[in-house]
Amino acid sequence: QIFVKTLTGKTITLEVEPSDTIENVKAKIQDKEGIPPDQQRLIFAGKQLEDGRTLSDYNIQKESTLHLVL
Rank of each mutant, 00 (worst) to 15 (best):
Q1P: 09
Q1I: 15
I2D: 01
F3C: 05
F3T: 06
V4H: 01
V4A: 03
V4I: 14
V4W: 01
K5S: 08
K5M: 14
K5F: 07
T6L: 15
T6K: 05
T6W: 13
T6P: 04
T6S: 07
L7H: 14
L7E: 14
L7I: 11
T8W: 13
T8C: 15
T8E: 13
G9S: 04
G9V: 02
K10I: 09
K10E: 08
K10V: 09
K10N: 08
K10A: 08
K10P: 05
T11N: 06
I12F: 13
I12T: 03
T13M: 11
T13F: 08
T13D: 04
T13I: 13
T13R: 07
T13Y: 08
L14D: 01
L14Q: 01
L14V: 09
L14N: 00
L14R: 00
L14E: 00
E15W: 14
E15S: 13
E15P: 06
E15L: 12
E15V: 12
V16F: 15
V16T: 05
V16M: 08
V16K: 01
E17F: 11
E17A: 09
E17W: 10
P18M: 13
P18S: 10
P18G: 10
P18F: 15
S19V: 06
S19P: 03
D20T: 09
D20E: 10
D20F: 07
I22C: 03
I22Q: 02
I22H: 01
E23S: 14
V25C: 05
K26I: 03
K26C: 02
K26A: 02
K26V: 02
A27G: 09
K28C: 05
K28T: 03
K28W: 05
I29H: 00
Q30L: 10
Q30F: 15
Q30C: 15
D31R: 12
D31C: 14
K32N: 05
K32Q: 11
K32S: 10
K32T: 09
K32F: 08
K32W: 06
K32R: 10
E33Q: 07
E33P: 01
G34Y: 04
G34S: 06
G34K: 06
G34L: 05
G34D: 05
I35C: 06
I35K: 02
I35R: 03
I35N: 03
I35H: 09
P36R: 09
P36G: 05
P36E: 08
P36N: 07
P37R: 14
P37E: 07
P37T: 14
P37C: 10
Q40P: 01
Q40N: 03
R41Q: 13
R41D: 06
L42A: 00
L42F: 03
L42Y: 03
L42S: 00
L42M: 03
L42N: 00
I43F: 15
I43S: 10
I43V: 10
I43R: 06
F44K: 03
F44R: 03
F44Q: 02
A45H: 12
A45R: 13
A45E: 12
A45G: 13
A45D: 12
G46N: 07
G46D: 06
G46Q: 05
G46R: 04
K47P: 01
K47D: 06
K47Y: 10
K47H: 12
K47M: 14
K47N: 11
K47Q: 15
Q48N: 10
Q48I: 13
Q48L: 14
Q48P: 11
L49D: 00
L49V: 04
L49H: 00
E50R: 07
E50C: 11
E50S: 07
E50H: 08
D51Y: 05
D51M: 05
G52I: 07
G52H: 13
R53A: 08
R53F: 12
R53C: 12
R53E: 04
T54R: 12
T54L: 10
T54H: 06
T54W: 04
T54N: 05
L55V: 08
L55N: 00
S56G: 10
S56L: 11
S56Q: 15
S56W: 09
S56V: 08
D57E: 11
D57P: 00
D57R: 03
D57S: 14
D57I: 03
D57A: 06
Y58P: 00
Y58A: 03
N59K: 10
N59S: 09
N59G: 13
I60F: 03
I60K: 01
I60H: 01
I60E: 01
I60D: 01
K62I: 11
K62R: 09
K62A: 15
K62M: 15
E63P: 03
E63Q: 12
E63T: 07
S64Q: 08
S64W: 05
S64D: 12
T65G: 03
T65D: 04
L66P: 02
L66S: 01
L66V: 08
L66A: 02
H67Q: 11
H67W: 13
L68V: 05
L68Y: 02
L68S: 01
V69I: 12
V69P: 01
V69A: 08
V69S: 09
L70W: 12
L70S: 10
L70D: 09
